[in-house]
Design a protein around this nucleic acid. Structure first.
Lengths: 123, 123
DNA sequence: AGGATATTCAACCGAACGGTTGACAACTGT
DNA sequence: ACAGTTGTCAACCGTTCGGTTGAATATCCT
């Protein structure tokens, strides 16, 4: 639990049950009991899952009598999206550049043959 | 390892070392030795990390003599982005709708008071 | 053929994970 | 005040995880 937030968020969403909880909380806030109902694990297990989501900053909870309604904090998802998109874009650009270089080589001389050609395999 | 791909990808990126590997592979392909150099864990540990990334579909490897150059498969990152954005958007829209409803109530009568008011705590 | 280089496989270890059961705590409503 | 509802805490269990060391495999180079 001493991990950085990004690790906690990725790790939290690595579990299908927790992803499902997030999906359902995206629609509406809900109590632990409501959330636990569809799964065939104990209430305690779901409570734990919610704690993981909460520690990751994905879920916040208020109090309403005995109930602890859970609310999805969507901003944290942005954190992930930013991380992912950064490297996806970087890799994509690099690839586009490679394509450009290869095209250029093809234009200049017939046997454009870089030693590590991945145009076939690498898509 | 029998988990669905989404779980495998999230789980793969939950580790800071593996995220760093991805970040570096976004810049250029690299061999296991090159990738392992900066970290103070054994080569075998890094090899395992790469296997996890490979099983998640994030990394592919070809052979170049003794070397096994690693290449980032950026498309898989899209899978995550799509999942995340779907629910982020859903939650955000819901929130915008709630704001609209509240604004409307404020306009019509002074005591707009839905039973589950979260405007204060929920941001 | 045989040494060097690059990488993986196998067995093991302690910590963390996801689950369980059982007891406890917080608050409600009559 | 007290029974009921809602949720968490604590201890335990088997599995997975990230790491290690040591041996094995694959390929190059001379």
């Amino acid at each position: 639990m001493a991990a950085d937030q990004l690790s906690r968020v990725f790790s939290a969403l690595a579990d299908p049950t927790r992803r499902d909880l997030v999906a359902r909380l995206a629609v509406r806030d809900a109590t632990v009991n409501e959330l636990a109902a569809p799964y065939d694990v104990t209430l305690q297990a779901v409570s734990k899952h919610l704690k993981v989501l909460e520690d990751a900053g994905l879920v916040s909870r208020t109090r309403d009598a005995q109930r602890r309604p859970c609310h999805l904090e969507a901003e944290v998802l942005d954190l992930m999206t930013r991380w992912i998109e950064r490297y996806r874009r970087e890799a994509e650009e690099r690839f586009t550049r490679l394509d450009a270089v290869l095209a250029e080589m093809r234009d200049e001389n017939g046997d454009g043959q870089p030693k590590d050609d991945r145009t076939g395999a690498g898509r």
